[in-house]
Design a protein around this nucleic acid. Sequence first.
DNA 1: AGAAGGACCAGTGGTCCGTA
DNA 2: AGAAGGACCAGTGGTCCGTA
Lengths: 244, 244
Amino acid sequence: GDTNTLDALSQEGFSEEPVQQDKEAAGTGGRGTWEAVTAGERKKQPGRKKGHRKVVDLDGDDEHGGAICERQREHPFIVTEPGEVARGKKNGLDYLFHLYEQCRDFLIQVQNIAKERGEKCPTKVTNQVFRYAKKAGASYINKPKMRHYVHCYALHCLDEDASNALRRAFKERGENVGAWRQACYKPLVAIASRQGWDIDSIFNAHPRLAIWYVPTKLRQLCYAERNGATASSSVSGTGVHLPF
Amino acid sequence: GDTNTLDALSQEGFSEEPVQQDKEAAGTGGRGTWEAVTAGERKKQPGRKKGHRKVVDLDGDDEHGGAICERQREHPFIVTEPGEVARGKKNGLDYLFHLYEQCRDFLIQVQNIAKERGEKCPTKVTNQVFRYAKKAGASYINKPKMRHYVHCYALHCLDEDASNALRRAFKERGENVGAWRQACYKPLVAIASRQGWDIDSIFNAHPRLAIWYVPTKLRQLCYAERNGATASSSVSGTGVHLPF
DNA sequence: AGAAGGACCAGTGGTCCGTA
DNA sequence: AGAAGGACCAGTGGTCCGTA
């Protein structure tokens, strides 16, 4: 790892199993469960990356013996149906949503530590939680990724049927993840419109969603739609009339 | 003013009356209401300071004609009984608590603006609120001061009788504001002990208190007392067995 | 091309310490 | 001495853009 600065808040909890992926939502990161299973490979410490080029190699026990290895990223997501496992070097959307549940677990651990110590207790997934996740071995969790897909997870939480239907439709059409991600905004805006446009309340009312910050773009889309958005108006490059 | 950076979030709301102090809790800042009344002086733009030495003088219309004037601070607080107006160049505790109510009003204005614009809406008194207060003319409100006395205000909110009794006792004994401020911790810790030590819940359950962050020291005192603090233990220099 | 994530940045919470 | 508050600083929320 490259975060060697001591963080008094996050030093406990390392005896926990680091990660422990669920079977039905198994991730397929650089060397994740699915790949491990199909290759007959023994499961290694999950999320352990090969080494970051910019960082002194502290591992020493790298299995290839090489001092410098290529940067290993998570496999990209593809649009999968509910229950479908992604084939090849891809990750499916069940796995994506599973990452949000894992973040929730890490938040709960951070909260428990904070309460024990009488310290300020986060109510949201903060930088501290991402740092904790990384230290606990879940290096495949990072802030930009989780923030990028929050609204997709929100739709999954708030209207699983609509979310599932959208996944099936986009898979069938052969759309890429970016198109599916964009399309997730529209049904959420529709939900907001039925609930007085208060997207913050909608998030906060759902126990698994309340721990996530409302994404800026979703907030802006709700605002634009509420104010009777016209065809010419747009929010930071995204037309209000969504492509879906 | 020295904050010339544009803040899109805080540009509205300036047609509001800037400050408008209540009569019964009139402050006596550099040139506040009480002083103005006793001196027969006409009330000027409240909170307008004489000019900050480190800043280019943008006023021009300074009433003394001097380019550089001495820095004018708020008068220091003294321990007053409930309803008592501080005499001389002092401010009383009713005025102190009134500042917290004013901050609440500024927060509500910031919240209303944010909601109108569909932006993130603060639930606490944040830097943004202090900036807004300053721009609205309430330059006598500042973050270090408000944070310094939050727990005193908390006691006033949670147990006004106990707060009043403490004020009377400390006034009678001729104690200074610092001693009174220190003494406010103990009854709060006692309240927390009766409610499962959850000081955050106690703050959040009270509508006027919920908008203030729990002060670090109060949190630490609750933690220490909960864990059966001994005579030798202390929290950052303050003995757990408080001087009161 | 589409996508993952290191790393940056403006503005935050917190409070110290030079000031009056 | 006791007290008010400018100003600093470590770590935050947010996301861009060099990378693979």
